[in-house]
Design a protein around this nucleic acid. Structure first.
Lengths: 110, 110
DNA sequence: TTTATTTATTGCAATATTACGATATATATT
DNA sequence: AATATATATCGTAATATTGCAATAAATAAA
């Protein structure tokens, strides 16, 4: 096959998986880190920061946009990207919750 | 192509991407959640919980093991899986750090 | 030892991802 | 209008992922 059986899982499970998947590439992690480092919106220049061709970067940006991890607004003849805090906060909360439950239970046996 | 240019990115960026990628499938999120819910090690039974065939589940478990998100130890003729807290804590800390930086800077413009 | 149980591996088909050259689009500048 | 600049899309090749039937491997139970 090759297609995931998303219909068998909960909305939350699918949502978390989509966000995690979008972050599952070093280039996209690098994009996120750069957006944070330069603080807020940058118009263009992401391409120059990455060791990848312009169409490839554009594709990675599109995937981050689809997962709602970044937002892009048109600014003259360039596009201004910044992080969508809501989505990263959602992911952060999810992992905080999971690790908290692990700490509470912590029944180590392996 | 199809292969990521991992050598151009930092170790930390690659590590986070590998963990995120491993969590980038709803079945693997479901496995993690089940491991937490039943608390600690369960020997087998994960296959019965998921709407997927045994070889498929085995493959997902392998990927979670490769990313060091779960650990598996042999227990009689079955295998006992549990979560490797270190890895999920690493990821949690990473996202806490990122979202903290976002909160500090918070220069909204999009 | 034979049989059952549990998990892993192999092989394969369908689909998705990654990367990039070529090209399109859209605005800015001259 | 013509040209430059910035980003997106298309097309395509290489590779990876997903899913499962068939089968192997390894231990447990009879």
């Amino acid at each position: 096959m090759g297609a995931s059986k998303t219909e068998h899982f909960s909305d939350e499970q699918n949502t978390i998986a989509i966000i995690a998947k979008a972050l599952g590439h070093p280039a996209r992690i690098a994009i996120i880190e750069h957006l944070i480092k330069v603080n807020a919106c940058i118009c263009g220049e992401i391409v120059n920061e990455l060791p990848l061709a312009q169409p490839t970067v554009s594709q990675h940006l599109k995937e981050l946009k689809n997962a709602k991890i970044i937002k892009g607004t048109i600014e003259g003849n360039s596009i201004c990207y910044c992080i969508d805090e809501t989505t990263l906060n959602h992911l952060k909360n999810y992992f905080e919750n999971i690790t908290k439950q692990l700490k509470i239970k912590s029944t180590h046996c392996c």
